[in-house]
Nucleic acid binder design. Structure first.
Length: 619
DNA sequence: TTAGGGTTAG
């Protein structure tokens, strides 16, 4: 089952105000004033190439070869300056064999020659040759310089090779290049992409001076490692230090906003991009689509998508996925057809998005048909993620036996997510027998994801099999698997308010619980009955009711009702799946308050209106 | 003359 990467993620600065909003606005104002005087184009950059370099760079490979031949005939190739330039031109064309031959013939190799060849291998993903050449460089007695080191560190980043990365870090330290911002930024990025966030932060903190790239790398690292709120704080710090974010930094911060699901901030990010006139290229445009969609604004996402002059398979897949998790399966399928009509070949992720969209809109037959055509018609081999979507589809249709048979028949490495999808479907249809079979396979994998164990525990609890619930709990405890705490947060007036279950830490807790009590009375009059089956503890009914009434999504929504103008849309984000009772509760709240309530959970968006949800009770 | 940061799922 697809999920946003929201687990374990919630804003840490409870009730805090993100300052980047005002700082971005101040830059924007400054920029507007600047524009009125000089109207500088931020996209025209100076170049560092001399005329000769520029000329060579523009030449085709055959022209470079011709020039090379002329230089050999005239003897000018003996000039190491000229030889180096031709060497560089060859690497730009990925003509690495000729480059290597030329390199061997250069008698006075300098650091430039080595850097260029090593960089050429790196850019061509020839990692082994890159490291072998780097080793020869060191053995030649020369010291690697601040041009070569970022290149080899980047290779470690691409391979997530922390061992070699650590060796290079120590080399950097010994050679005194830690103060070079190119070298240090490469190290930060290498650690970040290898998920060693503490090491990344250490290098970053120790940098004597940080430029835009170093900041962007560190901001991206925070988002990547599950702390988008820290990414926003860091972004704020960067701006306070006078650094103006460019389009790459803005794409990066759009990712953080996407993870947090905060619509207000998303709008500010987009406005800033517009004011700075950053071009909506394929990467920034796609990041903005993803941000708006994950912040609950599918219309703005589509607007950006339509404005983009160039789109690639990632942009299309992002938009298809967005329709999917907003429950707009037919639109997702339409877009998929348009994409094919535009001659864009779908990739593996496109199919995950399409199948996911089918699954979350109940398009069972269509989804199964597309799955069956994937390999034959589109040459994309189904993987476990596609199969998981199909299991969701079968689950929705109640075809649990067929789902189990399909899993057993397919020659695909099964993962916990796949078995989790089957257990989830069993939970909806109350099928303990198949759930137990799936659980056996799941437990064999001995994975640490608490969610799947909870699903099974949920099924046993619903069936009143408390002994088995206890057994699952024991297993989790033995394997030290902890349930991830559920959090729901709501953004009001640019402040984030975060709630946990039974939370009394909010300054307005008294009013929130009063609102909940009042709501409960009104809801019961229109037919809402709390479903205590969703409390997975073997406790008395009254305690269950108390626990149920203080679920984080209910607290956030109650606060939303108090803190936002009448008739306005309430948007909340939860890091886990919304609970079944809360889902029913929110439907009733949307009915009696006439509010549209949009809930983003770990799986998808739920649009509640007039007592119904866009997920049609399947999620 | 050469070097570091960017988009979709999980």
């Amino acid at each position: 089952m697809l999920k946003f990467t929201l687990q374990n993620l919630a804003p840490s600065n409870n009730h805090g105000r993100f300052r980047f909003v005002s700082t971005l606005e101040s830059i924007t104002t400054h920029k507007q004033q600047q524009n009125s005087f000089s109207n500088p184009d931020p996209h025209i950059e100076g170049t560092s190439f001399s005329g000769f370099s520029k000329t060579l760079k523009c030449k085709s490979l055959s022209q470079v070869r011709k020039l090379h031949a002329q230089m050999i005939i005239s003897g000018e190739i003996r000039d190491f300056f000229i030889a180096n330039k031709i060497l560089y031109s060859y690497t730009l064309h990925r003509a690495l064999e000729i480059a290597s031959t030329l390199f061997k013939g250069i008698t006075r190799k300098n650091s430039f020659s080595w850097s260029v060849l090593i960089g050429g291998y790196a850019k061509a993903d020839e990692y082994t040759k890159c490291f072998v050449t780097f080793r020869e460089y060191i053995r030649s007695g020369d010291r690697p310089d601040n041009y070569t080191l970022p290149v080899v560190i980047k290779v470690c980043r691409n391979k997530a090779d922390l061992v070699m990365g650590g060796v290079l870090h120590s080399l950097v330290y010994k050679s005194g290049f830690l103060s070079d911002h190119f070298v240090a930024a490469s190290l930060v990025d290498m650690y970040a992409k290898s998920k060693a966030i503490v090491d990344a932060a250490r290098v970053f903190d120790e940098m004597p001076k940080r430029d835009l790239v170093s900041w962007t790398v560190m901001i991206g690292a925070c988002t990547e490692c599950g702390s988008p709120d820290e990414a926003l704080d860091l972004f704020d710090r960067m701006i306070r230090e006078g650094i103006v974010p460019d389009k790459i930094a803005m794409g990066n911060i759009a990712n953080a906003c996407a993870k947090l699901g905060m619509m207000y901030k998303a709008k500010i990010v987009h406005d800033f991009v517009k004011t700075m006139k950053y071009p909506l290229d394929v990467i920034l445009g796609t990041a903005l689509i993803d941000m708006h969609a994950k912040c609950g604004n599918i219309n703005l996402a589509k607007e950006v998508f339509d404005q983009m002059l160039e789109k690639n398979v990632i942009s299309w897949s992002t938009m298809i996925a967005a329709h999917g998790y907003h429950g707009e399966g037919l639109k997702a399928l339409d877009l998929f057809q348009t994409m094919l009509g535009d001659g864009i070949s779908p990739n593996s992720i496109t199919f995950v998005s399409v199948l996911y969209a089918c699954s979350h809109s109940g398009l069972v037959e269509e989804g199964i048909r597309i799955f069956s055509l994937m390999e034959e018609e589109y040459r994309v081999r189904p993987n476990v993620k596609h199969l998981t979507c199909v299991i969701d589809l079968y689950g929705r249709a109640g075809k649990l036996k067929q789902a189990l048979e399909l899993i057993e028949d397919m020659d695909i490495d099964k993962d916990a997510g796949l078995w989790g999808a089957l257990i989830g479907a069993c939970g909806i249809h109350g099928n303990v027998e198949i759930a137990e079979k799936a659980a056996e396979s799941l437990l064999e994998l001995q994975l640490e994801n608490a969610g799947h164990y909870i699903l099974l525990s949920n099924i046993y609890a619903k069936a009143g099999q408390w002994e088995k619930v206890a057994k699952i709990r024991q297993l989790m405890s033995r394997q030290r698997i902890k349930k991830i705490p559920g959090w729901t947060w709501i953004e009001i007036d640019n402040k984030i308010h975060k709630f946990g279950v039974g939370d009394y830490t909010h300054p307005m807790s008294k009013e929130i619980y009063e609102e909940l009590k009042c709501l409960g009375e009104k809801l019961e009059r229109v037919g809402y009955v709390p479903d205590t089956n969703f409390v997975l503890h073997d406790i008395d009914e009254e305690s269950k009711l108390d626990l149920l009434n203080s679920h984080s999504e209910k607290l956030a929504i109650a606060f939303g009702l108090i803190g936002t103008p009448e008739a306005s849309v309430i948007r909340v984000t939860k890091n886990l799946r919304v609970c079944g009772d809360c889902h029913s509760f929110i439907k009733f709240v949307s009915l009696i308050t006439k509010r549209v309530i949009i809930v983003r959970d770990a799986n998808r968006f739920h649009h509640f209106e007039e007592g119904a949800c866009s997920c049609r009770d399947y999620w």
